[in-house]
Design a binder for these strands. Structure first.
Length: 596
RNA sequence: GGUCUCGUAGCUCAGCUGGAUAGAGCAACUGCCUUCUAAGCAGUAGGUCUUAGGUUCGAAUCCUAACGGGAUCACCA
């Protein structure tokens, strides 16, 4: 970080001094030197040959020479074609390390005085969470942590979809077939119990359709005429009218689901600062429709329905209020957007929602912009891709949905089996061992889901997800445990590693240099990850750092170093890596063990 | 059909604000535990970056088209 800045400004100087003109400082870029060449940073001179009026090669030579003479950071340089490779003095690496190792706010960028609201999870209360929700939850939580590290003030909110026809389906099936069953009486977790009746509804509903078709009715018509569906729709009307029996049942079943969700959230380590419930927000937004009509942004069609014409923006005409005056999805989303702004006054507002709703949010944000909402420029749809299984898409009707609770439990079981096989639990208390299995199982799962670019659809391969080797969560956790072990030994020997003094050292082992280089990248990585809303950047970084450390660990010995200064430096270096791994993993919502 | 999106090693993914001989992990093969945790490290093999054009000193990266996957286009949510 600090080395790069220095190099760039010297480079700028070099241009001025050699060629009397220079590109903007912000235009100058360095890239990491490829492994096969000597050096740490590379400057590409091709684009500047025109400016220097020399060949790229000669430009590189001249710039390199200037840097070597004027910057004490540059020990040497070489030029290959148009690539100027800069070799950094070990002293510069050492002081870089000194700076970052003693930085009390390492991993925390300066406060920006800016608020961000991240909405994620947003489940329906008619069935339990599945694999797709896990990607959503892990992403939302992780992005929130990353934005906090970027200096934003972040609030996490959950907009629970707790009303609507789908809930009524579960309610109706429960009423008909439930026989008064409760989570207590059945021993089934609340959200799963309600989900069971949602499935039950679907089963009977399809039976009815078949019967109707058997009686000669058209299939499409049968779908809308099946008695169960009509009853569910009636139930929804009764709910909206506030019919006590219906509302009571709704409250009871919802409370089961909430309790079940709470359990899952606690288990997977996500939290929310505020819950919004659709049952409380679904009427919002109608006043905005009025406002839009007055402003001439919306228009009415015969029948009274309200629309917006977005054809000029390359989109379609979009309905914003039904002819009977009832809301559609986007109506209440407009209302909720206003509500969030009223509650938080945020500068940025993210919603973590799957990419099947890309169009919806494109429209919504455009409408809010046309309405002149002050928060409109800060709206962002963090759109993530679907999670596929090796067998293809998850299909609830085919029973291929991977249940979140089941999956988490299986991951922990696998972690336990594997850990016991390796004999890693010897000397651990049952509590410590249990905690470890949880960390490893969840760590593997979270890392697996966060490792890939959020925007892309991804494959969940159960076999691969429980892999604990290579680019996985447990690999990084293992590296941390190794470091913790080193630090325990150092502490036993009474060696301090909080205040580093590297002044006695003048040279570095290549693997030490690489580790410092990797460490120095961290703040920039956090910034980039925050700008891209991409935990995958952090996952990749943490992996690279762990990998680099493991190489260092096998190539040199910490406790058999040639002298105590070198030994203490290596301990401090290990400590800094451990700290960075722990911090980076925390940005992914992953805990890291002291031993494993 | 319109719009959006993806296509990189056998598999899963990086790289994509243009730069050197395209990188990891898994799977396969070969080495390394009497020294700090081998859930580790080193190495071998594996690629016409879907295809065809274009822009450029330079393209996996940018543009266009084709092919192939996916999403979306309801007075559903």
């Amino acid at each position: 970080m600090y080395i790069q800045q220095d190099l760039l400004s010297h480079l700028h100087q070099a241009f001025l001094s050699l060629y009397q003109q220079a590109p903007e400082l912000s235009e100058l870029k360095l890239q990491p030197t490829r492994k096969e060449f000597e050096g740490s940073y590379t400057f590409v001179t091709f684009p500047y040959a025109r400016l220097s009026k020399k060949g790229p090669e000669q430009t590189g030579q001249e710039l390199g020479q200037y840097l070597k003479e004027h910057s004490e950071l540059v020990r040497d340089f070489n030029v290959v074609k148009g690539f100027l490779n800069l070799v950094i003095a070990d002293g510069a690496w050492l002081s870089t390390f000194q700076t970052l190792a003693t930085d009390a706010s390492w991993g925390q960028l300066p406060a920006r005085g800016s608020k961000v609201v991240v909405e994620y999870s947003s489940p329906n209360t008619n069935k339990p969470l599945h694999l797709g929700h896990l990607r959503n939850n892990f992403l939302g939580y992780s992005v929130s942590q990353i934005l906090k590290a970027c200096g934003y003030e972040v609030s996490m909110v959950n907009l629970v979809n707790d009303r609507g026809i789908h809930i009524c389906k579960s309610m109706l099936a429960y009423e008909k077939f439930g026989k008064g069953e409760t989570p207590q009486s059945s021993g089934i977790k609340g959200d799963h119990l309600v989900g069971k009746y949602y499935v039950e509804f679907d089963r009977h509903y399809r039976q009815q359709i078949e019967e109707l078709v058997g009686q000669g009715m058209d299939k499409e018509e049968a779908k809308t005429k099946a008695p169960l569906l009509l009853q569910a729709q009636e139930m929804l009307r009764q709910w909206e009218a506030g019919k006590p029996e219906v509302v009571n049942l709704w409250e009871t079943m919802n409370s089961w689901v909430y309790k079940g969700f709470e359990e899952t959230y606690t288990k997977i380590g996500v939290q929310f600062d505020k819950y919004y419930r659709e049952s409380e927000t679904y009427l919002l937004g109608k006043d905005i429709v009025e406002e839009g009509l007055e402003k001439g942004i919306f228009f009415k069609k015969e029948g009274g329905s309200v629309w917006i014409d977005l054809t000029a923006d390359g989109l379609d005409e979009k309905l914003v209020l039904r002819g009977d005056g009832t809301s559609v999805y986007i109506t209440q989303d407009m209302g909720t957007a206003d509500l969030k702004y009223k509650d938080f006054g945020m500068e940025k507002s993210l919603v973590v929602v799957g990419n099947e709703q890309d169009y919806h949010f494109k429209v919504l944000f455009l409408i809010l912009e046309k309405l002149g909402r002050p928060y409109a420029p800060g709206n962002y749809h963090l759109s993530y891709g679907m999670v596929d299984l090796p067998s293809g898409k998850m299909k609830s009707r085919e029973g291929t949905v991977v249940d979140a609770d089941d999956l988490v439990r299986e991951m922990e079981e696998t972690a336990e089996r594997y850990t016991r096989e390796l004999g890693k639990v010897d000397g651990m208390s049952p509590e410590e061992a249990g905690k470890l299995f949880e960390m490893l199982g969840l760590g593997a799962l979270k890392y697996y889901l966060l490792r890939v670019d959020p925007k892309k659809r991804m494959l969940f391969d159960p076999q691969e997800s429980i892999d604990f080797q290579g680019n996985t969560g447990p690999f990084i956790q293992y590296t941390h445990a190794r470091i913790a072990s080193l630090l325990r030994r150092a502490a036993d020997m009474g060696i301090g590693f909080q205040d580093v003094d590297v002044s006695a050292l003048t040279d570095l082992h290549p693997s030490e240099r690489e580790v410092i280089y990797q460490l120095s990248l961290y703040p920039e990585q956090i910034r980039t990850a925050g700008e891209a809303y991409a935990p995958s950047f952090i996952a990749q970084y943490v992996y690279d750092l762990a990998k680099e450390f493991n190489r260092f660990y096998t190539e040199v010995s910490v406790f058999n170093a040639e002298d105590s200064q070198r030994r203490d430096f290596r301990i401090a270096l290990s400590s800094a890596v451990g700290r960075t791994l722990r911090h980076g993993m925390s940005l992914l919502g992953i805990e890291v063990p002291e031993r494993m």
